[in-house]
Design a protein around this nucleic acid. Structure first.
Lengths: 285, 285
DNA sequence: CCTTTGCTGTTTACGACGTACACGTAGTAC
DNA sequence: GTACTACGTGTACGTCGTAAACAGCAAAGG
């Protein structure tokens, strides 16, 4: 183990090997990861230190380094460990249902959201060099497969899933940070802002701000997770529709070719029946 | 100054008082903030320390505490200082142009994006208790005013602007983090991932992932900022349209009442002329 | 003149952090 | 017995934010 911190493949190995059977006493990777998750759950990722993990287990700090190369790799292991908690919805049917992508992606997003509520520090993990473990990749694969048969280009699928993921982290970070500040300062959010009267006195000069304030926009806010998720999925849906429509000369419903009129707007459907079917498929506005 | 770290209003005062004329030698708030911005520009927010700022100015660490209550408040001051660099586009015309909200919001977003490219650490500022300064509030007010006359509810306006803002930070964080890791490790992103072959060997089991990989989705990715901004603005636009349409019985163009037919879909426009005008206003698909 | 007051910058110190390095100690293979 | 290895420990270094006491100096008041 000593000197392995620089070995790139060692981190991969730790993440991807199955949990070896080890009911023996003493330290073990699984025990360390579990203890670390407990610490991070309670005190956030910034409050996670090797010393605290070791103390919780009753060992010295440096003993951890016999099992984990360092703090960063420990966080990678924690991530993948808690992702195992969230079961994946079964893979989409072999014959993809049109429009099912949205429900699947939404379920995924809500599951991830739930996970971030249980382990808020997940959103605090930053940096572009965190190795994905098997559970992380499985989740990623699952989200990608949701948008696979939508007419999006490969790069667009990747971008769409990435956008949803980053949105999740951004929203979760909001909650984590308020919780952290309340925990560490002992002062609630309202109290803290309330004791800054001298700030609010200066905000009268801003017309829209005061309008929204007086209209109660800040008293009855939208749920920012729900709002953002809806907007982003709507935006993706619009893109998918646009990609669909660019399949010119093909009926949007049955896929048969459509004769294009010499002038005017090109037709989307091959028959009245298909147009009506599309109308019903769109559902009530 | 000593012991003022606990005075809530002192932070507000520092942020909102105009820059007093102080061409004298020695330390000053403005000089400290300027030096701190330089350090953070070069080394990121994590690399910003009171010692480094003091060294750069040729003073001792503790001398800074005569002018700034602490590191957090210094960051607040830095934020507002760099926001002064970005000039605001002039306020929207008194008679709001329908549909102009999108262009305005997009210009705002791109300006903020540009600012984050110049000062990447802006995206690293976390926490829900950062005092806004005059420049920050001006930007916020400006974005809010962009969506003011769109038919959105107050809470929806706030949520929409917040969503765009958080998106900006999330995307910028992506760039900051890769830059930081490359700077601190001296290893480029490709090199780093390239030396993890043992990871990629395990990714064959994931069909969608390998499909996207082989289709070149990762070789020619979408610009994630452009992609995300377009999707989010599309999503907001859809909501605005929906809010518009719920103004039943009122012509979407001229605002005059529309007679509702006894059966069938309620009409959106009061006349052929208005319908045609709406068609042209939508522009080419 | 001297003294008081207040602002400014300095010095030292504390407790946290990640982890490098040298050292034990115990179990196992030869 | 004797190497070898895995595991756990103790000490130490350099980083961080900042609390507390102290020193120099200018203006103000007597």
């Amino acid at each position: 183990m000593r000197g392995r911190a620089e070995d790139p493949d060692h981190g991969v190995e730790l993440l991807w090997r199955g949990a070896g059977a080890e009911p023996r006493p003493g330290l073990s990777l699984a025990r360390i990861v579990r203890a670390a998750v407990e610490v991070a759950d309670a005190e956030g990722l910034a409050g996670l230190s090797m010393r605290k993990v070791a103390d919780r287990l009753g060992f010295t700090t440096m003993s951890l380094y016999r099992h984990v190369p360092g703090r960063d790799q420990l966080v990678d292991l924690m991530r993948d460990a808690v992702m195992a908690e969230q079961p994946l919805t079964p893979p989409a049917a072999a014959a993809p249902v049109p429009g099912a992508w949205r429900a699947t992606l939404e379920v995924c997003a809500r599951a991830s959201w739930e996970l971030r509520r249980r382990h808020p520090w997940l959103a605090e993990v930053r940096g572009s060099r965190h190795l994905p473990g098997p559970n992380g990749v499985a989740h990623y694969e699952h989200m990608l497969s949701a948008v696979r048969h939508t007419g999006l280009t490969p790069a667009e699928m990747i971008a769409a899933v990435g956008l949803v993921g980053r949105f999740l982290d951004a929203e979760a970070l909001l909650l984590v940070e308020t919780a952290r500040q309340e925990r560490e300062s002992g002062v609630s959010e309202e109290e803290w802002w309330g004791s800054r009267d001298s700030l609010f006195e200066r905000l009268d000069r801003y017309p829209t701000l005061t309008y929204l304030w007086e209209a109660g926009g800040y008293d009855h806010p939208e749920d920012s997770f729900e709002f953002g998720l809806a907007r982003i999925l709507d935006g993706i849906e619009l893109l998918i529709q646009k990609r669909d429509e660019t399949r010119d000369g093909i009926c949007q419903i049955c896929g048969k070719p459509v004769e294009t009129p010499a002038s005017g707007r090109p037709r989307k459907y091959c028959s009245h029946a298909c147009r009506q079917r599309a109308y019903r498929q769109r559902g009530p506005a």
